[in-house]
Simulated scan of single mutants.
Amino acid sequence: MNKAYLIHEYGGPEVLKWEDVEVGDPGPGEVRIRHKAVGLNFIDVYHRTGLYPLPALPAVPGMEGAGVVEAVGKDVTEFKPGDRVAYAHPPGAYSETRLIPEAKLVHLPGELSFEQGAAMMLKGMTARYLLYGCFNAMAGDVVLVHAAAGGVGQIVVQWAKDKGTNVIATVGSAEKAALATELGADHVINYQTEDFEVRVKEITGGKGVDAVYDGVGQATFMKSLDCLRPMGTMVSFGNASGPVEPFNIGLLATKGSLFLTRPSLMTYTATRDGLLAHARDLFEVVARGAVKISVGRTYPLVDAPQAHRDLVARKTTGSTILIP
């Protein structure tokens, strides 16, 4: 019998219940995989609390994982038993074994570990659409990256620098500031001791940045708009501090004819070609060492509730993974 965490109702970490779940054989177009590692992400917290409701309850949360194909269903052509695979959607990763549509899987290159695969798929492909899809950061551009020591932030900083972009990073501690500098950020702002809006204006000579990549949400959103140059781009892709409050869209005009987007990875990788392009580009920058995937902490899968508590309390740095 397969073990998995199920959510029967929305709430705190205590609503995660470790239970027996029958998985069964894969149906047409499905693959059954045995997880070797599972990624932990803020979207898992949003699913648990109901901020982003799951399609139906009870449900198994968890967006990304890596493992080995155990069996394939009818009409599956790209995978076979024994293949190493990884994915970043749909939910269901907090389990020892699961079924998943073939179209959502990618082959995990042999030079990458299962731990790297589980730590990089959702965060790394998010970084890819941020830097190429939402605002195509180019050499000479200046971007502001919030939570630069987090799982997505670390990848965005490194990848942006690989593209020749100037990076201003924000972090919440001296330790994280040192890490952001090590990753290549040109300027690092500790928002616990400095006003990031004031510092951004100082760094840019009052001009503002070309784009803001903001996964923090409520605590940083409005001030981030004031960090942008005229016709700059605000990319709000997460709510780590809580959801952004409704606001008058006219503010985008008064603050400089700004562009605002609220993207999701699921949209950018909705097609098979889109998914494969994101994974290919991610694997390429990691394989040549331009982006290093940091696994900050590892928990047994059975300790997922504690991992959630630590993530929300900002006790984690980089990517966190759960081991079945």
Rank of each mutant, 00 (worst) to 15 (best):
46 Y>V: 02
164 G>E: 12
129 Y>W: 14
171 V>I: 10
233 T>M: 14
271 T>C: 03
5 Y>P: 00
85 V>Y: 00
284 E>Q: 15
220 T>I: 08
222 M>I: 11
267 T>W: 13
2 N>M: 10
209 V>Y: 01
220 T>S: 13
80 K>G: 01
253 A>I: 13
203 I>F: 10
144 L>F: 06
134 C>M: 13
42 F>Q: 08
229 R>G: 02
216 V>R: 02
44 D>H: 08
311 L>M: 15
284 E>R: 15
57 L>R: 01
37 A>V: 03
255 K>P: 07
142 V>W: 11
321 I>A: 08
139 A>M: 12
177 A>V: 01
30 E>N: 02
307 A>R: 05
211 A>G: 09
119 A>L: 09
90 P>S: 09
58 P>G: 01
61 P>N: 03
256 G>F: 05
188 V>R: 00
196 F>G: 11
21 V>L: 12
204 T>K: 06
142 V>I: 14
211 A>P: 07
212 V>R: 01
26 P>E: 02
79 F>D: 00
244 V>F: 12
193 T>Y: 02
20 D>N: 12
103 A>R: 15
98 R>H: 03
138 M>G: 12
203 I>K: 04
289 G>T: 10
208 G>Q: 04
102 E>N: 07
56 A>N: 12
287 A>G: 14
131 L>V: 05
282 L>Y: 06
201 K>A: 12
195 D>E: 13
167 V>L: 06
242 G>C: 10
168 I>W: 05
85 V>T: 02
279 A>L: 04
109 P>M: 13
279 A>Y: 02
212 V>C: 12
77 T>W: 04
3 K>E: 10
235 V>N: 11
95 S>H: 00
246 P>G: 11
292 K>Q: 14
198 V>D: 14
267 T>V: 12
185 A>D: 00
101 P>E: 03
172 G>F: 03
267 T>S: 14
193 T>Q: 09
263 P>C: 09
156 V>W: 04
224 S>Y: 03
13 P>V: 11
51 L>W: 07
296 G>V: 03
150 G>N: 09
279 A>W: 01
98 R>E: 05
250 G>W: 09
76 V>P: 01
171 V>L: 08
312 V>Y: 06
175 E>M: 02
291 V>G: 08
302 V>P: 00
253 A>G: 13
162 D>A: 15
181 T>L: 12
178 A>V: 09
274 G>M: 04
17 K>G: 06
302 V>A: 14
307 A>Y: 06
13 P>N: 11
141 D>S: 10
141 D>M: 05
138 M>Q: 15
114 F>S: 03
269 T>R: 00
233 T>I: 10
159 W>A: 06
118 A>S: 09
276 L>N: 12
4 A>I: 02
41 N>R: 10
